[in-house]
Each structure stands twice: as C-alpha cells, then as structure tokens.
Design a protein around this nucleic acid. Structure first.
Lengths: 143, 143
DNA sequence: CTTGACCTTACCATCATGGGAAGGTCCACC
DNA sequence: GGTGGACCTTCCCATGATGGTAAGGTCAAG
C-alpha cells in the first residue's frame, strides 16, 4: 500500500510518516518502481503504536526505545515501566509548574475589579519594583 | 547602559532582549556611536515586566498586549483581567490534557509487574489492534 | 599596546507538526 | 488515446521561545 493508505490506517499523517523515517524512528520504507513508498501491515502496526504513544505524550526519543522493547522478546517489563514512570514524572512536574502559574494569576485576578477603571493588581504585580522576597530573575552573574 | 547590564538588571538574557526587539515586542534600543545598544532605566522596567509575565507563562503575543495596557492610562482593568483569565483557561486545559495522560499511564503501570518478565500491559496497550471504543486516530477521511 | 570582557550580526538547534510549491505517477473514464 | 484528478515525491518555510556558537568589532584597564 502507498503512504496515504498507511496514514489512514495508522492515524499518522503522511507528512509525519516521512518525518519519522527521516529521523530514523522507523526504517526506510520500500519503494515502488516509480519511487513511491510501499508499506505492509506490520509497518502500519508500528505506526499505530507510535501514534498511541504520542497520544500519551511520550517524546519520540522515548517512543524509539519503546519500539525497540516491543520487538525484543527478552525485554524486562521493568524497563518499560521505568520509561513510562519517568515520563509520568516529567508530566507531573509540568502540571505542577502550570498549576503554580494558574494559582498566582487567579489570586491576582480575584482582587481585580475587572471594570472600567484602570487600577489592576495584575498589572501592578508585573510592574512592581524588584524585591528581595520575590525570586528576581537576575541571571546570576555573567549569564 | 549596555545590553549586558540591562540583562542583569532585568533578568532577561541579552539574547532574548535582542530577540524581543527583532519581533517588535520592544522598541529598537538607541545605539552608541560604535553601534552598541543603549538602555535606560525605563527599558529595564519594561524588560522586568516581560520577564515576570513570562514567568507566569504568558505568551509573548499576550505580553505585548499587557505592555500596551500597562502604558495606557485609560485602560479598563477588565481588559487585563480578560487576558489573564484567558491564559488561565488555556493552562487549565493543558493541565487537564496532561492529567489525562498521566492517569492513563499510571493505570497501566499499576498492573505492570515491573520485573524481569517481558509481559507488560503498557506495551500491550500501545500495540493493541484497532478498537471501535478507543478513539482511533483515523485522520477522518482525506486529512 | 595588549588582553579580556564586552558588543555586533548571522546561523543552527531544539520539538513535533503543518503548509505549500513544483513536479512526477497512476488510473479511471470518455 | 488522451486527459483530469488524486496521489506521490522532495524541498523549503513557519510555529514558540530559547540557547549555542562563530566571526568579527569595541572598549577600558593595565
């Protein structure tokens, strides 16, 4: 089958299939006489695997490792689990960062009248002079 | 003062100051005879404002609007609040997405032995055949 | 006058994805 | 037999915000 069919069957766009090939995530596809990429059912399975892993937020580098483990009969499930939990930890950290920003802004927005007057604690906070308490960005020296 | 001092005093790297200028977030700095960018205290204030807004996750485009509002004596605080809450909503959505991925993976990882055996529900899930229940990526037709 | 810290521009990389252009292929229909 | 349209190819550009590096100019202190 051609790349368009593989895309439809796997849920990965043709564009991305070519990209995955270019970065070595998947092996170069076979080619027809005219130079068209040719795919087999197994290729579609791999692409579907990648698609699902992407949907779970795994970076391509980790997906590469997961693909290897998938094809390795002697894999240890602890290896898979470690990759998964590492990714979970990364996402949880991202969530914590986002949550902190959300909390800060919501706190400021609470005391903002939100009417026609210009006074606004949000602007005030952003425009406030440097403090010793607030961790001021100071790129520590000659950064 | 030169760009290095402005960077140290604002917490924004020299690199980013030049970038912000290039995209029009800040006005082009004055230049010394030798072509060095020259900054005043007010420029540093603006940069510090940007830095704080970035720390709260605001995209540069929104920061541009916030800067305008900051300098507008006739601003309506509701405009500021709207920008802030819109950003909060975007972050909350991101959190929800991340949380969903975390939950899915944690659920799978729970039933993964994580030992020397190859069997692993995480791999199984990624490698599972298409289902009608799981929203299969199918780029809906000619996507 | 040298040295080193600073400045300049310009390009490349990240991460994963989409968009588009220019051109070749294939098939079905008339 | 020809033609149109759907498909394929490669190549370049853009995203968002940031860092890195390289090649070269400037400045001030010693």
């Amino acid at each position: 089958m051609n790349i368009g069919d593989a895309a439809r069957q796997s849920g990965v766009s043709a564009k991305m299939i070519r990209y995955y090939e270019s970065i070595g995530l998947i092996a170069p596809a076979g080619r027809s006489e005219a130079g068209y990429r040719v795919y087999e059912a197994d290729d579609v399975h791999r692409l579907r695997f990648i698609r699902r892993a992407r949907d779970l937020g795994f970076p391509l580098e980790t997906i590469s490792a997961l693909l290897d483990l998938w094809g390795n009969r002697r894999r240890r499930s602890e290896q898979v689990k470690a990759l998964a939990l590492h990714h979970v930890a990364a996402m949880k950290e991202q969530i914590a960062n986002l949550q902190a920003m959300v909390s800060t802004i919501e706190h400021l927005a609470e005391t903002c009248h939100g009417d026609g007057r210009p006074d606004c604690p949000i602007i005030d906070e952003l425009a406030a002079p440097p403090t010793r308490s607030r961790r001021e960005g100071r790129p520590s020296g000659r950064a």
